[in-house]
Amino acid sequence: MLVSVRKILFGAAAIAAFGLCSTGAQAATANATAKANVLKPLQMTGGGTVDFGTIVTPSTASFSGTFTIDAAGSQTSTYCASGFACTGTPAAAMFNLQGSNNANITLSVPLNVTLTLQGATGTPPTLTFVTKHSLAANNGTGNYTIQLPNSGFPGLNFYVGGSVTIDQATAGGSYQGTFTVTADYQ
């Protein structure tokens, strides 16, 4: 009889424990996602010079002309304004951007660059170089979003050209200015 009582007590304890578990609090679960965005180092090379060559003004008392360098690997349009004489080979500055395929890049190109007459004393005369590049239409801010078409080499080549306007008030001499193009991952 002692064995029967033990079996009954053991069975009652097991039922009680099962009952407590089934009527107690239930466990809650939730899922999380782990992510990593791995990008190749962003590299930009090139630059060079936007070259307008040599511009000879007309001999008339009043003149004005705009000279435009194509934002391309070679000049296909006429850049010398009517009535002026131009020599040299016009050229845009070329940049190469390399990074991760399909990555969104913020590109910043100044809208205007001040070119200063070299060797001038006092307050030197200036020209305004209005930039244009080959990646997107001018949006008025100089900041653009582009997407890289491949990873690493060959990257993406783009060109910066633009225009200057010269009139009878423009002092003769060599003008020069420096500008910086920046790129960063978004």
Rank of each mutant, 00 (worst) to 15 (best):
N104K: 14
S151Y: 01
N157S: 10
G161D: 04
S82L: 09
T57F: 00
F129T: 04
M94Y: 03
T141D: 10
T141C: 10
A72T: 13
G122H: 01
Q147D: 05
K132T: 15
P58C: 07
S59M: 07
S151G: 11
G53D: 09
A136Q: 12
L135R: 03
G88W: 06
T57L: 00
G65K: 07
F95C: 03
T49L: 10
S100A: 04
I55Y: 04
T106A: 06
L135F: 05
V50K: 04
L135M: 13
S77W: 08
K40D: 06
T128V: 12
N96L: 03
F129D: 05
N143R: 11
S62C: 02
G47V: 01
N139D: 11
T60G: 14
A85S: 15
N143Q: 13
T76L: 15
S134R: 04
F84M: 08
H133D: 08
S82V: 09
T106G: 00
T87V: 09
V130R: 08
G83Y: 00
F63D: 00
V56F: 08
P154H: 01
L107Q: 02
Y144R: 03
Q98Y: 01
T66H: 11
I55E: 06
N139G: 10
I69S: 03
S151F: 01
A136W: 00
V109I: 13
A71P: 07
A72H: 09
S100Y: 06
A61Y: 03
T131Y: 04
S62E: 12
A137N: 15
G53Y: 11
N157K: 08
V56C: 00
T76Y: 11
F84H: 09
G122M: 00
Y79K: 02
G73A: 15
S77R: 15
T165D: 03
A93F: 02
T78H: 00
F67D: 05
G53K: 11
A72M: 10
N138P: 09
P58G: 07
P125K: 12
V130D: 02
G46K: 06
G53C: 14
Q118F: 00
F63P: 03
S100F: 07
T49M: 05
A103L: 00
F63S: 01
Y159C: 06
G162T: 13
L135I: 06
C86I: 14
C80W: 14
P125C: 12
N150C: 12
T78S: 12
